[in-house]
Design a protein around this nucleic acid. Structure first.
Lengths: 339, 339
DNA sequence: CTGCGCTACGTTACCGCGAACATCGGGGTC
DNA sequence: GACCCCGATGTTCGCGGTAACGTAGCGCAG
């Protein structure tokens, strides 16, 4: 019977109930060391009977081992990080490790707080989005002695390991593809970027290539907050009213891009004849639209998987490649006219 | 200088560096008890200098207090739970408590595993989606002695506290609204439901009201996996080809509903004249569509907030209302014709 | 000067578990 | 039969903190 005294259950209770030492109970519950089948059964029965749940806090302290992996990401609300999480989960599923998520809202000071909090639980590894962190955060990570994988972005120097894509290159490639199709008068829409370094780098890569070809972005607009789809609509409408000469719109993410696309379709504007569109991310969600937006896959799930694999590998003292740059491919869809 | 010996830092290192006892360091770092400003400064300086991060494992063991709240949800990938998380975060932000997320993929056995894992860290509270759990899971929760808030659904008896809406009622209300508008030949599309109890309850509430009015669902279809938007498209197309007499389609969630809506619009079908549509959830994302889908808000953020408030309240030994049923409202949008 | 109370700090005893080592008993080897 | 070995189990100790309590030093009233 799940006893109900105020005193919490411990190994000792199970050991007394089953007539063996605490150590043996510990061994049974962790499947470690030699225990005869007979006693194993007795112990398991007693534990089940009592409703005993081991205390990992004590266990972690004694063994100096914590099966937690801290995952620190900016947001859960924009589809991209949940997909990274999925990748991480898939890999950690097969190990003893468990992910623990912390959210920073793109705020460096919050990242610092969350990181401090996480590190104080002495996790077996840290997976953290981005290469840009406050000095204090970097110092913590460096001196923690814990494996650290920085994900999403590889335009920079990691503290330890990194897995991601080059956003600069992603922006550049998209620019090349657009130019190759003959578009020349280009507008840009995206989030307010001071804190979204990856969006910024894409933008930089994008404009650099344009510049090399003697082209400048003719109009731009930035948003923050709200439903991205709706913002994409509004911004696109405003931009085209303001700059009707544009023949291409580049969006910093798929959701606002989709908003723009829907606006254009609703208003009978010829896509990609009159105006071409491209965005970034490759969110699966949009596959339900009748017109497929040109975009570029961010390899989110693979990134999660590889990062988790690196942590798991370190755990097992295996050598793993620890600077991985994935190569995203452009999906032309229906909004980036081919020659 | 952040020392780099292999030996990890402890309170002792900080105490030696600052010339006070470990206890005083502990007090400083936790802002507890009397410490003079002078020594506080010295200690903080030393801690910063060394890059010391407290070990919560040891702290938790000694104090029998863990500032973690376990949040157990079925999925991160469908917008609804991230929004619940947002609500939880907003409230816990102002407390010492920290959410830790576990994902069950709608699998009871995985829920059990995740719960066991979580409870073994002795969190200060558990927020868990749904009222349906395995017997073992219920037993664990009951005997844990930890505050438990079951969220999303209130059609049933909670273990401890609960916050949510009545999905049965939500389905029923939508059925009434649809009938009131004169629709009569109704099709239903949703996920395969054996494990999504809330979708099931909505469906039950829905069909019950129809039955009372002598109406039966004329066609139905279920999907699993894949992009919901795309599935909504495909299923809608198939269903209308199969059952062209239908004048209303009820979807178990907004994403497939939106897929259906887009299909109808693309094919020039008059919405809501020829076919009306309604779904469930009120996902903000869809506000960018040119035609607004009729839906019903699931009060996700409030649910998160209230659940977190209950846990925080228990922590502070306050009395809080602990059986809360929120009342979702129908948004008619443009797809549910008014009289 | 004594004694009281207060503040600022130190001491001690755990918290629940696991690593490392000790022990015990029985079967095989020669 | 002496010896060894090995699988199964127990003992000891300490992980890094914190609660609870103890105490030194000071100011101040009488």
């Amino acid at each position: 019977m799940p006893h109900d005294n105020r005193r919490p259950l411990t190994l000792r209770d199970v050991s007394e109930a089953s007539g063996v030492s605490e150590m043996t109970v510990s061994r049974v519950l962790r499947n470690r060391g030699d225990v005869s089948d007979a006693t194993r059964e007795r112990v398991l029965a007693a534990a089940r009977e009592l409703g005993y749940v081991p205390n990992k806090i004590a266990g972690a302290l004694a063994s100096n081992q914590v099966n937690l992996v801290a995952v620190i990401i900016p947001s859960l609300s924009n589809m991209v990080f949940p997909e990274v999480m999925t990748g991480i989960n898939e890999v950690l599923e097969d190990t003893e490790l468990q992910p623990v998520v912390g959210v920073t809202d793109y705020l460096p000071e919050k990242e610092e707080r969350v990181l401090y909090e996480m590190l104080s639980w002495r996790p077996s590894g840290v997976i953290i989005a981005g290469l840009e962190h406050s000095d204090a955060a970097k110092a913590m990570l460096e001196s923690s002695g814990i494996p650290v994988v920085e994900i999403m972005d590889t335009d920079g120097k990691p503290i330890d390991a990194m897995v991601g894509i080059s956003h600069r290159r992603a922006g550049a490639e998209m620019a090349r593809a657009i130019l190759k199709q003959g578009y020349q008068r280009i507008g840009f829409m995206g989030t307010k970027m001071p804190l979204d370094h990856r969006a910024r780098k894409r933008f930089e890569g994008f404009t650099e290539v344009l510049a090399k070809n003697g082209i400048e972005i003719e109009d731009r607009d930035f948003y923050s907050g709200g439903s991205a789809l709706a913002k994409g609509r509004e911004m696109t409408q405003r931009m085209l009213e303001r700059s009707p000469e544009l023949d291409f719109l580049y969006y910093s993410n798929d959701m606002i891009g989709a908003g723009g696309l829907l606006y254009l379709l609703d208003n009978g504007i010829d896509v990609p004849g009159q105006v071409g569109l491209a965005a970034f991310n490759g969110v699966e969600l949009l596959q339900g639209l009748s017109t497929q937006l040109a975009t570029m896959d961010a390899c989110r799930r693979e990134i999660g998987q590889m990062a988790a694999r690196i942590i798991a590998g370190r755990q097992a003292r295996e050598e793993t490649e620890d600077h991985v740059t994935l190569m995203p491919k452009i999906t032309y869809g229906d909004t980036l006219r081919r020659r």
